[in-house]
Amino acid sequence: MFRSVEELVKLADESHLSISEVMIQSEMETTGKSREEIFLRMAGNLDIMEKAVERGIHENVRSHSGLTGGDARLLQDYLASGKSLSGDVLLDAVSKAMATNEVNAAMGTICATPTAGSAGVVPGTLFGLRQRLNPNREQMVRYLFTAGAFGFVIANNASISGAAGGCQAEVGSATGMAAAAAVELAGGTPDQSAHAMAIALGNMLGLICDPVAGLVEVPCVKRNAIGASSAIVAADMALAGIKSKIPCDEVIDAMYRVGRMMPGALKETAQGGLADTPTGRALKKKIFGSAAPSSALNNP
């Protein structure tokens, strides 16, 4: 078992294992389950992620509120036009991250990574990198174990809850996890994974959770989109040999402390940020009327 990123990287280096392998062995040790059982369960999660992505980029997904849906497809069409500024890999990842969150907002089936509101970044980054890196199914499942290992450290030392730590704890964590996992998928070292995560999460510090009308839609879908792009850029930086001056564990701790300092209005209460703009308030009124959702709901 590892409690910090430092311990995780040390474990991997000393036993000449990948981060994903350290995570799998740790899971076997903690739960007493077999490698096959653990691997199959994660492969099942990968299937769910893939289905959500496919649904989001092919079907006409719309949320009940009408606030989100269809943007992943718009990006796919734009990609096909060959005119993109940021490049095919990046935009494909962005589109697939959005696809996942659009399905989530429409109350579809997704796999939380680490949460539902931030479920797009990790699979979006993976499926966006697929054409470039051509991974086999095992490598794709391993990507999820690597992302899980880093997320595990964040969850136990800081938070992955927007209500407790703001969006930095959700999309911030997911971006760090995806960056670290992308490094391993591309053949980087455990240490480079740690730097990618530190760079990615460090860039997300202070990000507030301000869902318009309290819905996991605006700005969540777009935060996941740009989270996926940041993850790939951070992974590239680490693979190029760039190091985070602040060690990964200290970045995680900083995220935790920033979350503690953040006022309640900016932590998933829909009382600040974009939720508290004239348009944000108007959208809330349009969706719920003026009284709801503050009135008690009776059933029947």
Partner: peptide, 23 residues
């Protein structure tokens, strides 16, 4: 340690939209 399994992080498979407020 509040979270003990990798599937606490990569999971659950769930109906959206929020892991904390829905799942």
């Amino acid at each position: 340690m509040k979270y003990r399994s990798v599937f606490d992080i990569i999971g659950p498979v769930m109906i959206g939209p929020s892991s904390s407020h829905t799942a």
